[in-house]
């Protein structure tokens, strides 16, 4: 089963929920895979001690122009819908950050002057997070990391998602927002938890994320982090839209302190493990 953890607003607690959910499910004897798909700022590893670490570069094919063969006819720039090519006086100028690696330029070049070469855009790292001393269980963890200045998050995420092992409970920590990277992360999920906070900002961005998931036809429920009894608009909205609120994590000093030290709060406050496992039961019940 693939469960994605997403939110419209940044900083609502996606990584906190993802890692605590993964840990709690492992503690209850399940095989868990955690993928940090927030490739612009992966940080789930901060909560995890990794062993058997590996790293590999991720490439995208981009055009290389053979100036001997090129006649500056302009066909490549004409077919490039991303405007990554420009015909200057004496050469073709290429803007790698705009290229979507569609291959159109090399396909249509009448002189066969364009070949494709690999360009590094980031890396994928993986490892086993062994969470309890002496435990045989661990979280199979992998993350993607986009190099600074790169913008093509979705191809890197597709590469990362190739590691998905559907025999395990797969937890995807998605990037915030509702644009291409978020959609790429949640695509193919069996269920999505939308994390929000009880503020006008949290609610505004929750609505956007709800609309997105409806279009994608992914079943979802809401999870309120830093819950307090001061702002009830999120509750009213969910009630009106008939959306389940699957969990509330209160605004509590102890939880905040553990978080700020990079410690999974469900590890120190084991009563939370049961609550996180219930999230899994909640999905299973809905699927039946």
């Amino acid at each position: 089963m693939i469960i994605s953890i997403a939110s419209g607003k940044g900083g609502t607690g996606k990584t906190t929920i993802s890692t605590n959910l993964a840990f709690s499910l492992v503690q209850s004897g399940r095989n868990v895979q955690l993928l940090d798909c927030d490739v612009e700022e992966p940080n789930a590893h901060i909560f995890l001690d990794l062993e058997n670490k590996i790293k590999e570069n991720v490439f995208l094919p981009v055009p290389q122009i053979d100036e001997e063969k090129c006649t500056l006819c302009g066909k490549c720039a004409e077919v490039c819908v991303y405007n990554a090519l420009f015909i200057a006086k004496d050469r073709v100028m290429f803007f790698p950050q705009l290229c979507h690696s569609c291959g159109g330029c090399s396909y249509f070049c009448p002189r066969e002057a364009i070949s494709e070469i690999d360009r590094v855009i980031g890396e994928i790292g993986a490892g086993d997070a062994c969470l309890t001393r002496g435990s045989t269980y661990g979280i199979e963890f992998a993350y993607g990391k986009l190099n600074i200045g790169e913008v093509m998050a979705p191809p890197l995420m597709r590469k990362l998602k190739k590691r998905i092992d559907e025999d395990k409970v797969v937890i995807i920590d998605a990037p915030p927002g509702t644009s291409c990277p978020m959609i790429e992360a949640v695509k193919g999920s069996d269920f999505c938890f939308l994390i929000t906070e009880p503020t006008p900002f949290g609610l505004n961005d929750l609505k956007l994320a709800v609309e997105t998931l409806k279009v994608l036809k992914i079943p979802f429920a809401v999870l309120i982090n830093r819950w307090n009894e001061e702002y009830f608009e999120v509750d009213s909205y969910c009630e009106k839209e008939n959306i389940s609120i699957a969990m509330r994590i209160p605004l509590e000093r102890k939880i905040a302190e553990l978080y700020s030290r990079g410690i999974l709060f469900s590890k120190e406050l084991p009563e939370w493990q049961k609550a996180f496992c219930k999230l899994f039961d909640f999905i299973e019940a809905l699927r039946k």
Partner: peptide, 12 residues
């Protein structure tokens, strides 16, 4: 209305 690279296309 280019999604990206408007400056490049306009320059062309």
């Amino acid at each position: 209305n280019a999604a990206g690279g408007a400056g490049i296309k306009a320059a062309q």
